[in-house]
Amino acid sequence: MTAQSTIKSLEKTALRLRFNLLEMVGIGKAGHLGGSSSLAEIVAVLYFHKMKVNKADPRDPSRDLFLLSKGHAVLIQYAALGELGYFPKTEFAKVKTLAGALQGHPDMQTPGIEAVTGSLGQGLSIGVGMALALRLDGRPNRVHVVMGDGELSEGQIWEAAMAAWKFKVDNLVAFVDCNRIQATGPTCEIFDIPDIAKKWDAFGWKVIEIDGHNVGQIIGALEEAETVKGRPTVIIAHTVKGKGFSFAENNAAFHNGILTEELFARAKAELQAQAEALDKN
């Protein structure tokens, strides 16, 4: 069992990441708020608790690896990397502009970014290659790949799923961010993929289902994954798209939406209220 103090601290970190998200999305600019916010707890647990990271040497050979296959949610990764000090937080406001360094999708010129993703469906394959290379060298580093549920319609993911099983990759953990909404509407209407857990199970993976906003469950799933040998593990994380911003929750309009001045103020107020509530408990 993870200590309550650790859980509380990570919940606060997730909230801080959402504040950072808000700073990046800003007013009047399009930004992938929904699919970034659904990952705040998972990213908080990975970067601030579970993974071995080294901001002083982003290419530290002993580091654990994080790949955001759903690259459009890179704002949440920037939120964590900036918070950890991989680059100055002043970059947040300049994201996706010629004045800044942070690109619209993961780009390896950014410290802490491990691969180029964004053309959907490629991250799991890249992770499999990394995991196989680490195993060849007898290195203990672990690989984490985050996919979206909408992204599962990409055929390459299932190619990678078969390859990971074939090669008995057990130093890789995949997450599916099941926020149930993709760019143009609910996933069940746009391209329904039923029985996601059964599918991964049928592909030979160890499947763990969790509430993707429950820090304790995320930690528990990652600890369980470490005990799985001879096959890969997928954590199906049930999440809320736009989590933390009431107007954006479960709303496809904020997949890549624009915040008006009024919505921005409301979003900030909502996060502040959540912060106060966390402090009180």
Binding site: L65, E114, A115, G121, Q122, G123, S125, I126, G127, V128, G129, M130, A131, L132, A133, L134, L136, D137, G155, Q156, E159, A160, M162, A163, K166, F167
Partner: peptide
């Protein structure tokens, strides 16, 4: 044999997997 990876008839996965190998220090 330990450095040969039969990726099956899945060229797209093979290409991205090769990228992963390269990112982790191999020459695929």
């Amino acid at each position: 044999p330990e450095r040969f990876f039969e990726m099956g008839i899945a060229e797209q996965n093979m290409a991205s997997t090769a990228a992963g190998f390269a990112l982790a220090g191999k020459i695929p």
